[in-house]
Design a protein around this nucleic acid. Structure first.
Lengths: 350, 350
DNA sequence: TGAATTATTTAAAACGTTTTAGCAATTCGA
DNA sequence: TCGAATTGCTAAAACGTTTTAAATAATTCA
């Protein structure tokens, strides 16, 4: 026997007041700050009645009337990827503290999917969006920001020529530090394995690598392998070919490249770090177990999430249109030890 | 200059019809099946006008009036855990095809968080819930199902004495197959590393292990290590102690246990499979690279997601209260090869 | 004391849909 | 040819809030 939902009208009747008063009290607007005033005792009584009846406000009605949903949309590359999953988790937790709920979506680096997600989420009436832009996203982002006027924060990557806030790693510095770390250990023939993509983070990482190599006077031996970004990329061949040319160390532009690269290395019977050194972005429990990496960048994942969320909420709740903020997070280089021991294992039973 | 949102009233005016007609057409109810009839040409005209004005329905108004939100809630242990992230991803994709959007939440196996999430999601007006129940969830699930009358599908684990649909692995069979796989290879001293938890999946896995050992006449040498489920669990000690007693193989009850176990094994300088054999649940790219597992269970992750979602939607959209369905997925044992090669790498740039 | 303030409270109008009930006009069946 | 059925459409009532504008009650001021 499903009982009809309790509404503010029920509370108003029970407490002998008008629904407006109930609304004021429910929204903590009874303090007089916004021009509304409610008698202390009345407010108390209303709260008690609401509690007694176990009142739960109707969100649909609320957003219909107010135009705000207390929901934000988060568009990532792929929620099943560890890096993004960690960020998603962090955003989820932060949002909870601000009483916002979050919708997640994955683009698979496909601009068409991004377009869909933006549409679905704005149709759902999100108050703002956190977006990891894929290639070809610039135009859409511009349209959302300028025409639809929806607050947006970019994450992990940026797009040129759009006035929008963002939270990114100092990718250039991270890559050059990693390269220097390898150079400091005496490796000279260092090659980078990267994707052929124009994403800002990739571009910056390549630039950082080149800068460090140049600084060391090794620009002519710098090599960047640009792999296609799909599951057909021939990373195995790239690794083998480079090794046969006598490469001493690899710098992997992303974590997934490092994983596949390590697989390729292992299948060829080469050992790390005895035969080859590697440096990469993000840590993984795998690296921990076998002590394979020479150096890696530890990205401040929690800050990616919390900064982006706070930037967004500040923007949503600000009355005046404020200027954009660009948050650049500093990389932490972890070398010569078991990196992922720093991050405790997750809580889930798996 | 933000332009006011286009409503069905605008369309009605422009097309010279009533808003009701627009509504019928927009909901594809114009086919007469439900008693509504609209002239073909009129319908066409309405669609054209809607298109011209770039009409987007207002979800808040829609759910307020209809009581349905086309949103479902998915409550997992931890979205940043690979297994759940994969499932989340699959649910996201399936839901999109049904034009539903999904809210995700993580419990961290904490019943209080589960309670919060159920509250937040039902307040948001979800049409149904997919839940991975943690310990102590039974009472809450019962209340949601029976009192709030919200469609629920349980995932990965079940709870006793509640009439509710579920999608689970045949955990008992999976565990016994894994154990038999080890027995077939001649290992006798096989011990299981598990959590001290009353979750149905864990219980079943333990039962499967015991059954296989008993069947082989080895019940007296069967040992189950029950670790505390937190980051202070002393898996390193358990592994070392067992090894010193001459254990030949470990069966890990979960993937995270296998990862930590392998770390412990590696730190002690033992090699797999030369010194020790291991079998576990779920694969991981890590296992792939170093060829460490002797056997593992490949869970049909896509089916977990898709079956759960379809069950839920069927339930949501059925007018009549139908009986509960229990879907038991069959495990696939992967042995003697590189298991994760089966799953292609993800698409995200990482 | 009466006017001016200030403190409470309320009626009613949105917000944008869905859906019920029913009205005309047309077609049908005999 | 006349009632009955069918077709095409509409007016209006929800749905549960927020918020405006204004009414009423209590207090202060001079």
């Amino acid at each position: 026997m499903r009982t009809r939902k309790v509404t503010i009208r029920d509370i108003a009747n029970e407490a002998g007041v008008s629904i407006a008063l109930v609304s004021f009290v429910m929204n903590n607007k009874a303090d007089g700050k916004e021009g509304y005033r409610v008698n202390k005792e009345t407010a108390q009584r209303i709260l008690e009645v609401a509690n007694k009846l176990n009142y739960r406000p109707n969100n649909a009605a609320r957003s219909l009337r107010s135009g705000r949903s207390r929901t934000i949309g988060v568009i990532l590359s792929d929620i099943s990827n560890k890096f993004f999953a960690d960020i998603a988790r962090c955003i989820e937790d932060c949002a909870y503290n601000y009483k916002y709920t979050v919708l997640f979506g994955s683009t698979d680096e496909n601009p068409q999917k991004l377009r869909n997600l933006i549409e679905v989420f704005t149709d759902k009436g999100v108050d703002g969006l956190i977006i990891v832009p894929c290639e070809g996203a610039a135009e859409m982002i511009r349209s959302v920001v300028q025409q639809q006027q929806i607050p947006v924060v970019l994450l992990d990557r940026e797009v040129p020529d759009v006035e929008v806030s963002s939270v990114v790693l100092n990718n250039r510095r991270a890559a050059s530090s990693l390269t220097r770390e390898l150079l400091d250990r005496g490796y000279r023939r260092i090659e980078m394995i990267s994707y052929s993509m124009e994403l800002s983070n990739i571009q910056e990482r390549e630039a950082g690598y080149l800068a460090a190599m140049t600084e060391a006077g090794l620009e002519e031996s710098a090599v960047i392998h640009h792999l296609r970004h799909d599951r057909m990329n021939r990373i195995g061949e790239a690794v083998r070919e480079a090794r046969e040319r006598g490469v001493e160390a690899f710098l992997f532009a992303t974590n997934s490249l490092a994983m596949s690269g390590l697989t390729a290395i292992s299948r060829n019977g080469w050992r790390v770090p005895q035969d080859l050194a590697i440096a990469c972005f993000d840590t993984d429990q795998m690296f921990d177990i076998y002590d394979t990496t020479t150096a890696c960048v530890q990205q401040p994942i929690e800050r990616f999430g919390s900064e982006a969320l706070e930037l967004l909420i500040k923007r949503i709740e600000a009355k005046d249109v404020q200027s954009c903020t660009r948050v650049v997070l500093q990389p932490e280089i972890v070398a010569d030890e078991r990196p992922s021991a720093i991050r405790p294992p997750a809580d889930a039973v798996r």
